[in-house]
Design a protein around this nucleic acid. Structure first.
Length: 335
RNA sequence: GGCGCCGUACCCAAGUGGCUAAGGGAGCAGUCUGCAAAACUGCGAUGCGGCGGUUCGAACCCGCCCGGCGCCU
């Protein structure tokens, strides 16, 4: 079993571009599940803010890799990858092509190009480093890192605590330099035969959609959801609560600023996020881009997606198993 | 038509004769291998409504013109 017999279809794009909307008919046609690649939808009870499509809008398509942990439980790429690989193995076993959909670039990359097989987070050690940074400033971390891994230190900004801590942690746990370990891995794995589709649209149009979606989230009860989470004891410094929506609304609920300001900040921060996603995906190799327009119907975009998918499945170098041929036929009939 | 106030970047705005025209907002560009919706980094005026003048030197003073606002007729 080499990667050539493990096809994978991935749909990426910035938030609010319309990924879910496009993915559901595609999943239906492929008779497969949607594997969400979203670092935020893994938290249970965080629905409105994380834009999980409500069950009644999922068209009967099972959504995997969401609602995995409580908001105060740690989660990370490694965990995601383990669970995602298990889901994909299952689907391949059943002769189906997994359809991954999401906006977390790192998670997608860890699936498509693999992940350095390093140690998981050592939180005890991290907290020690965080305390050090708080007491003596980030420069203290930088000095340590420059000592054990000068190459990594040279590449990081002296204020970038998170990445400096990871570098120190890797050295602490493995005794080797993270810069060496990364170089050895190089994101060079090819575990799957992948079709990577990127959805994009005009920036102004995207920003308009973001503004509109934030208004929708608020109308759907984002404030109440945030209040509920805070009441349940999930406080603002949790990684999950620092996600878009909860962070800004919690600020309002705590009296840091008025409601209107929270809304303004949420819209702005979501625009910034979408921009960063585009920056990430822009340099990710192998993405086939589909530019969406307001004037074009969702159905028309789905047809364009289907054409790419059909061509991919029909290519015998990707996978010529009977199952996928069957899927391909179903797709043709549906399109 | 007369008088007064104002005109500095996409927006707000400091500067009222002498270092390279503050600052904020918005925006743009980027980094990323186990917290990634996080975290972190970089970037706007050879120019102050326009044209002349005064001065060694003008966003700043003077004149005319253009535009905006207010009051008067």
């Amino acid at each position: 079993m080499d990667s050539l017999c493990k096809p994978l279809i991935v749909v990426v794009g910035p938030t609010a571009v319309g990924k879910s909307h496009m993915a559901i008919p595609l999943a239906q046609a492929l008779r497969t599940d949607i594997l969400t690649a979203d670092s935020r939808q893994v938290y249970r009870g965080m629905d409105i803010g994380m834009d999980k499509p409500p069950v009644e809008q999922r068209g009967g398509v099972p959504h995997r890799l969401i609602d995995l942990v409580e908001p105060d439980q740690p989660f990370n790429v490694g965990e995601y990858r383990r669970l995602a690989l298990a889901e994909m193995a299952r689907l391949h076993q059943e002769g189906r092509v997994p359809l991954m959909v999401g906006g977390t670039g790192l998670y997608v990359r860890a699936i498509v190009r693999g992940l350095w097989d390093g140690p998981p987070a050592d939180w005890e050690y991290r907290h020690r480093l965080m305390d050090l940074a708080r007491a003596e400033g980030a420069e203290a971390l930088y000095r340590q890192l420059a000592h054990v891994d000068p190459e990594l230190a040279a590449r990081l900004h002296p204020r970038d605590e998170i990445k400096m801590i990871r570098g120190l942690e890797a050295y602490y746990v493995t005794g080797r330099r993270l810069s060496d370990l990364h170089r050895e891995h190089g994101f060079a794995e090819t575990p799957f035969s992948t079709l990577l589709i990127g959805l994009t649209r005009d920036r102004h149009e995207l920003y308009r959609r973001i503004d509109a979606r934030v208004d929708e989230q608020l109308a759907n009860g984002l404030v109440e959801e945030t209040r509920r989470l805070l009441t349940q004891g999930y406080d603002r410094h949790l990684s999950s609560m620092k996600g878009l929506g909860y962070r800004q609304i919690a600020g309002y609920l705590d009296g840091d600023y008025p409601y209107e300001e929270a809304v303004r900040l949420l819209k702005r921060d979501t625009r910034h996020f979408a921009k960063r996603q585009l920056t990430w995906f822009r340099k990710e190799p192998g993405i086939v881009w589909i530019e969406m327009h307001e004037r074009e119907s969702a159905e028309a975009v789905v047809v364009r997606l289907m054409v790419l998918v059909q061509r991919f499945l029909a290519d015998p170098t990707n996978c010529s198993s009977a199952a996928s041929a069957h899927q391909s036929a179903a797709l043709m009939a549906g399109a």
